[in-house]
Amino acid sequence: MLPYLNLFGRVLPTYSLLGVAGVLLGLLVALARCKRFQLSASDCAYIYVMGGVGAVIGAKLLYLIPLLPQMIADLPLLGQNPSLFFARYLTGGMVFYGGFLGGILGAWLEARYFRLRFSDFFPVLVPTLPLIHALGRVGCFCAGCCYGVEAAEPWGIPFTHTIAAPNGVPLLPVQLYECAAELMIFLFLLWYAPRAASKGGILRAYMLAYAPVRFVLEFFRGDVVRGIYGPLSTSQWISLAVMAAAIVWLVRERRENRS
């Protein structure tokens, strides 16, 4: 649709611009809510930003893990044509769930470094996850990646200037469906955060809300480079694991509360 934007005389990818806009918007939302939950805005900013660093690293690593054999085979390229190696593996390629896990790890490490309890920041940090992701999905739509299966108009939208999807073929705008679902989850978490029985309950609510959405939407995805293992895609397997982890966590917490 609109893979590039011309800003200040430079051609920039819309996907990354919207991703960065989402991260900055998320930071503003988190900082604006710190006072309500009696948290230090400075601590929150550091934890949020290091969570963002962890997210970028995690998203990249999960993308590279399935490519490891190919990457090892291409190692001689580092000496012969490093820019090609760099272009092939280091630019582009991010996986959301890697970012989710990496983000949690990065933020947790930063909280631990400052000797703060990480879960105290869940009410301000967790709602920003679907907000960032929603803007990222609009970026996917603009770039034409993460596209849906073929569908007749008006359900399908033909892309004209995409760099990833087939041009001129009506495709289900599954990126926008996911964006809408993410925005609903974001609003729900804003409402739920002050009402949750435990701080961990907010993260669990996000896991239980997002994983089923992603699991279902994957059936409507038409892009083939996501990795399919057996009957399900990589993200569907991870969605099942996330749902299972959230349910086990919920059951354990209820048992502990009873005893």
């Binding site: 996907y15 963002g52 630019t91 582009g92 991010m94 996917c140 990646c145 596209y147 996501r226």
Partner: peptide
């Protein structure tokens, strides 16, 4: 943070873009 953000703009792209672009030999996006 700004260095990270501006660096990320030229670095971050999603998985399908990467697959499609590497298929056509595209370098930076």
């Amino acid at each position: 943070l700004l260095a990270l953000i501006f660096g990320a703009i030229s670095f971050v792209a999603c998985i399908a873009c990467a697959g499609a672009l590497s298929a056509v030999g595209y370098s930076y996006y």
